[in-house]
Amino acid sequence: MSHLSRFEKSGATTEPRWVKYTLVALSLSFFGFFLLLPLISVFVEALKKGWDVYLSAVTEPDAVSAIKLTLIAAVIAVPLNLIFGVAAAWAITKFDFKGKHLLITLIDLPFSVSPVIAGLIYVLVFGAQGWLGPWLDSENIKIIFAIPGIVLATIFVTFPFVARELIPLMEAQGREEEEAATVLGASGWQTFFKVTLPNIKWGLLYGVILCNARAMGEFGAVSVVSGHIRGYTNTIPLHVEILYNEYNFAASFAVASILALLALLTLAVKTYVEWRLRSETHAEPLIEGQP
C-alpha cells in the first residue's frame, strides 16, 4: 500500500472530499449492480427451492457425468498447455531469434477468436464434411460430437494462459541466473528445475489457475463440438444450459453454483498468488544486491 500513502500525504495529489466520496460511491454502485448482484443471484436462485432440490440437482446421474467430463477435459488440457507454456516462454525469453514478436502474437490468437469459431475450426477439420472426416469415419474414430472434440476445443480456448503469464515474468527476470548455472556446469534440465522453476513457480501457478477456470467453464467452443448428448458429451456449462432451456431453473442454478464456487475459489487463490508474486518481486533487489 506504499503507493497509497504516497498520494495521500499532499494536497497536490488528492481531491476534495466530496469528489472522493462521489467517485467511491459511483464505483461501488457500478460494481454492485454489474458484478456482485449477478454473483449473489446465482446462489440465491440455486437454493430457492431448498437444499433437497439443490442436492438432487447436483447428484443426479446426468449432472455427475457432466462433472466427470469437465474434469477429464481440464485434466488433459491444463497439463498440455502448461508444458507448452513453459516451452514457449523458455524459447522466447532465453534466446534471440527472428519472428519472436509474430510468435507471441500468434500464441495470443486463441484469445481474440470467438469461442464459436474455436469450435467451428475443429468441425471443419474433423467433422463429417471436414478434411479428415471420411478417413476418421472409415477408421470408426469419432472426434466431433464426442469427448476428443470437447478436449480439443478446451485446449484451444485455454491455449495462451500459461505462456502469456510466463513470458513477461521470465523476460523481467533476465538470463543472468541461468547463465551462471550453465557456466558452473549445470545441464539444461538442472538449470531449469533448480534455477528457473523456483523463480517462476508463482507465475506458473497463476497461469495454471486461470487456465483451469476457463477449461472448466468454457461454453461456446465446447457447445459447437459437443452435440449435446445427455450423460455423454455434456460438460457442466452445457448441462446448465440444457436445464435452463427446460425451464428447470432451480436445478440449472444449482449446477451453475458449482461453477460459481469454482470461480470464487479461483479468485481467492489468484489473489493469494498475486500477493506472493508482489512480495517476491519487491524482495528481489535486496537478494540480488547481496554478495
Binding site: F31, E45, A256, L267
Partner: peptide, 29 residues
C-alpha cells in the same frame, strides 16, 4: 489505487470475476 475504503481488497479481488465466472453462468444469472 488512490483511496482507502472498507472492502477495498474484496472488490479488488472480485473485479476479475468476469474472467473466472463461466459465461453460461453469467448468462443465466
Amino acid at each position: 489505487v488512490r483511496y482507502n475504503f472498507l472492502g477495498k481488497k474484496f472488490i479488488d479481488a472480485l473485479v476479475d470475476l468476469p474472467f473466472a465466472l463461466p459465461t453460461a453462468v453469467t448468462g443465466i444469472a
